[in-house]
């Protein structure tokens, strides 16, 4: 992103974050932090090509995102996991949720997609609940389904919004393992090291994973650098986020 002004998703003329200068290199793990309502989600959705930037240039894999047809092609290489329950489709089963992007992209029937979908379900330990409607799942499992759905088309970049919010210790451990495997490379990434962008207001659980840190505060974007730079920053908001709830 170069000179990008991120707009509000519901009010496209309202600027949320201004002057975003952001280069994400392959294999990096970025942690974007900031208070609630600061514009992190809008920033991720703009990076994923869901909303146009108010101004500036958004390039993904060197290609501009403006043209809709091209945006859709690029979007397949970018996975996005939404906040909360991950916006899974509640009336569909877990299998149908994960299979949807595969069947649509490859023009396959649900049964024919099993060859591509089953390994993903197994990798994310969802195979036992494949026939359960996603609407019946709790937050942690719904988020796991959302991750499986986002990685179904083997994207190179994975964007995750508030990935650890509300996770208990077991699920947090699982999530860290998944993120580590994603960054190191595994069958889901085709063996290559994946790229990860995490936007979160809970920053402490992500300190050990993040390579580069940035903050969104009062509509401004600031790249802080690595973990040491992040922890040594004297910005009050960051100290507050690092301290968490006492």
């Amino acid at each position: 992103m170069h000179g990008v002004t991120v707009s509000h998703p519901r009010s496209p003329r309202v600027a949320l974050v201004k002057d975003v200068e952001w280069d994400v290199q392959p294999g990096e793990c970025w942690v974007v932090t900031g208070g609630q309502g600061s514009g992190k989600t809008a920033l991720l959705e703009t990076a994923a090509g869901l909303h146009p930037a108010l101004s500036g240039e958004v390039r993904v894999f060197g290609e501009p995102m403006e043209v809709a047809a091209r945006a859709r092609r690029i979007r397949r290489r970018v996975g996005l996991v939404f906040d909360g329950h991950g916006r899974v489709f509640p009336r569909m089963t877990v299998y149908e949720n994960v299979a949807l992007p595969v069947t649509y992209d490859h023009d396959l029937s649900l049964a024919d997609a099993a060859e591509l979908v089953d390994p993903i379900l197994e990798a994310l330990e969802l195979d036992r609940i494949a026939d359960v409607p996603a609407g019946r799942l709790g937050r942690a499992w719904a988020r796991r389904v959302a991750i499986a759905r986002a990685v179904a088309l083997r994207p190179e970049i994975l964007l995750m919004d508030n990935p650890v919010t509300g996770l208990d210790a077991t699920n947090l451990r699982w999530w860290r393992g998944f993120a580590t495997r994603w960054l190191e490379g595994n069958p889901l990434t085709g063996g290559k090291a994946g790229t990860l962008v995490l936007a979160s207001d809970e920053v402490r659980p992500l300190l050990s994973i993040g390579h580069r840190f940035a903050v969104v505060n009062d509509g401004t974007w600031r790249v802080l650098g690595d973990r040491a730079a992040f922890e040594s920053s004297d910005e009050p908001l960051l100290k507050e986020l690092l301290a968490g709830i006492e």
């Binding site: 994923a48 869901l50 979007r75 489709f89 949807l100 649509y104 992209d105 759905r149 088309l153």
Partner: peptide, 18 residues
């Protein structure tokens, strides 16, 4: 309202088509 349309877009599925 639940954001499923944006979720479809994010998955590369055209919401009008689907």
């Amino acid at each position: 309202a639940l954001g499923e349309v944006e979720a479809l877009e994010a998955l590369g599925v055209d919401p009008i088509h689907y």
